[in-house]
């Protein structure tokens, strides 16, 4: 019997998800033994045309990481969707836009203007130039992908079967997912989140929690935190309560507040709004001015509450004005 076929792809992301796959260490050999890897640009030399030539639904499993930032990401997403039986949004970027999604806080114009013209390290001639999607060279024409205005999650572009959250997904969770698929057990319902639980980060966090009342917020560098006490109780904005568990509460173990990479827990549509609702509930002030001054202590609310989920939040991006 032929081995099941596996494809992996890296769209707009840092590549950490690919490393995470390798972080399952020697088990990668089991993966190689169990699967016939047919597409993995970062590790093996495959051409898009090879995949395009394959029959539809001929790939059994595709782990797709990275958000959709440009026309190439989208093209491959559509291609992998067509060729794969099971398409998995792998990692925060594919799942909900991730860090690249923060680009939705600004515009393509602003980004280009900075990157190609105004950043201090850029040397410009004649006021600088932007990359052109189509340019003519003596040797012929060159086409490069077009960068989109808005960063999208994978499921905003193509139909996704399963989601594996995390920035990056934890190796043991990855192995768990692969092992499950290899076991031949019936697959979960479409749209399921794999490699994570239904609870929140607090469930795995070992810190002692109290009933909350907050008068002041701190940034992590501002105070010496108690390693055994809930960071939120100590005034550190920790996204743990509004973040799906599965990572093993890695960050809080390292004395750093949860940043929300595993995305919203089930039933929550907007991680940022939920966290805002929760935090404002426990602020210990009734006077509008005092409330405003407490809120002022939270620097960069958009970046804090939507660090990973902006592109997949209810409003998705900042309105271009």
């Amino acid at each position: 019997m032929a081995k099941p076929k596996l494809g992996l792809y890296w769209a707009a992301s840092c590549g950490g998800c690919e490393i995470a796959v390798l972080d399952i260490h020697e088990k990668i050999l089991d993966v190689a033994a169990a699967f016939d890897i047919v597409f993995w640009p970062v590790a093996l030399d495959f051409k898009y045309s090879d995949v395009r030539a394959m029959e539809d639904k001929s790939i059994d499993l595709c782990l797709f990481n990275g958000s959709i930032r440009n026309s190439e990401n989208a093209e491959i997403a559509h291609m992998m969707r067509a060729k794969s039986k099971v398409l998995v949004a792998f990692g925060s970027c594919a799942l909900e836009g991730g860090i690249p999604g923060l680009a939705n806080l600004t515009t393509k114009d602003a980004i280009w203007n900075y990157v190609y013209k105004e950043s201090p390290s850029t040397v410009t001639k004649n006021g600088g130039t932007y990359p052109q999607t189509h340019s003519m060279m003596p040797e012929g024409s060159i086409d490069i992908p077009e960068m989109w205005e808005t960063v999208k999650s994978l499921d905003q572009v193509v139909d996704v079967d399963y989601y594996v959250p995390g920035c990056p997904p934890q190796p043991e969770q990855i192995w768990g997912v692969i092992e499950y698929i290899l076991s031949g057990k019936p697959l979960p319902a479409k749209g399921a989140v794999l490699g994570a639980t239904d609870k929140t980060c607090c469930d795995e966090c070992l810190r002692e929690r109290k009933e909350k009342k907050l008068k002041k917020f701190f940034r992590p560098f501002e105070i010496q935190t108690d390693p055994n006490e809930c960071l939120l109780d100590q005034g550190i904005v920790c996204m743990g309560p509004a973040t799906r568990s599965g990572c093993g509460a890695l960050c809080t173990k390292a004395n750093v507040p949860c940043r929300g990479c595993y995305g919203p827990p089930p039933n929550v549509t907007d991680q940022g709004a939920k966290m805002v609702s929760a935090l404002s509930s426990i602020i210990d002030a009734q006077d509008p001015q005092e409330i405003e001054s407490i809120l002022d202590q939270i620097v960069d609310p958009m970046g804090t509450f939507y660090r990973f989920s902006l592109a997949h939040s209810i409003l998705r991006r900042v309105e271009k004005s």
């Binding site: 806080l105 940022g272 709004a273 805002v276 609702s277 935090l279 404002s280 509930s281 602020i283 002030a285 009734q286 509008p288 409330i291 405003e292 809120l295 609310p301 958009m302 509450f305 409003l315 991006r317 900042v318 309105e319 271009k320 004005s321």
Partner: peptide
């Protein structure tokens, strides 16, 4: 409503952040 007087100003910061 005391929760509301904290939630709405907080949310207003996000709304502003979204360019609304």
């Amino acid at each position: 409503n005391y929760k509301t007087i904290r939630r709405l100003p907080f949310l207003r910061r996000l709304v502003k952040g979204f360019g609304i």
